[in-house]
Computed example of a mutant assay.
Amino acid sequence: MDLSPVTEALSVKSFDKIADICDDLMLKVSSEGISFHDDWPYAIHLLGYFYINDCDSARFLWKTIPAAIKESKPEVVAAWRIGQKLWTRDYPGVYGAIRGYDWSQEAKDMVAAFSDLYTKRMFQLLLSAYSTITIHDLALFLGMTEDAATTYVVENGWTVDATSQMVTVKKQAVKREQKLDSSKLQRLTEYVFHLEH
């Protein structure tokens, strides 16, 4: 089984493409009738879904992973621990799951990049959901020490009241565009077709 497209994407830090690359390879290998379970980079595949914020696909993948793999590959379980925390919206727990495992060299850069991206997502969540927040809660949401979290938000224009230990959120206009990716729809159609036949 040729996993070079995954290796290449990891080496150039194209982490946002990992899930799609893995999905395409999995479909190709499955259609050729090749057994791939023992060699498949499940941890990387799961992390790829988390990177693009697709917990549903990660849950589906987790359910299809053979029990023997889950028992023999602790990094797969560690990756899924991140997914469990994401799924239950245990925001501080995500950071605990990230830091709670000594990731392989193959996964280390991707996990670090996901952690940074997740912190940015949490910042945007705080920006949209809060007008004030305690420094303690801020640190939990951002997975940082209280000092580091305070510095992070002050650099983004928020204000801190050291006496009350409260942070005032500086609201920003947020623009969002939703794009339909026809290639994902095509892959999903092919995958469902393959499962049905």
Rank of each mutant, 00 (worst) to 15 (best):
I21L: 11
V12W: 06
H197M: 08
Q165R: 15
K108D: 09
G33S: 04
A68L: 10
D24W: 04
G100T: 01
F123N: 05
W158C: 13
V160K: 12
V77L: 08
K73R: 12
D102M: 08
K108V: 08
I133K: 02
L117V: 03
D147W: 02
Y101P: 03
L142E: 06
G143V: 07
A9L: 13
V160Q: 08
V94W: 02
K70F: 01
S14I: 00
Q105I: 12
D39E: 15
R59I: 11
G48N: 02
I18E: 04
F114S: 05
A129S: 09
L117H: 05
A149K: 03
L142D: 08
A43N: 04
H194V: 05
L117I: 00
K85F: 01
H136N: 12
A19D: 08
V111Q: 02
G83Y: 09
D181W: 03
W158Y: 03
Q105S: 10
R99K: 14
Y191H: 08
A68T: 15
Y101H: 15
L180T: 10
A67K: 14
S164M: 09
T134E: 10
Y91V: 06
S72F: 00
G100C: 06
P66A: 01
L3V: 09
S30N: 11
Y51G: 05
S183T: 14
K120L: 08
D90W: 01
K171I: 01
A43P: 06
S183N: 11
A129R: 11
D38F: 05
T168H: 09
D116E: 15
P5Q: 05
I18Y: 02
I52P: 01
Y191V: 09
S35E: 10
S4V: 09
S164F: 05
I69A: 05
E106G: 00
S72A: 12
G83W: 02
Y191G: 06
T159C: 09
K63A: 13
T163V: 11
L185K: 10
V6Y: 03
N53L: 07
I44F: 05
S115E: 15
Y49V: 01
Y101L: 03
V153F: 04
F15R: 00
G33K: 08
Y118K: 06
Q172L: 12
S31C: 07
T151F: 07
Q165I: 00
V154I: 15
R121N: 03
F114E: 05
H37E: 15
K184P: 01
F15V: 01
I34Y: 01
S182H: 07
N53Q: 10
S131A: 12
W103F: 02
S131L: 12
G48A: 04
A162G: 06
L180G: 00
K179C: 03
G143D: 09
V29L: 14
D20Q: 11
T159N: 12
L138D: 03
P41N: 00
F50E: 00
K184V: 06
L127A: 11
Y95F: 15
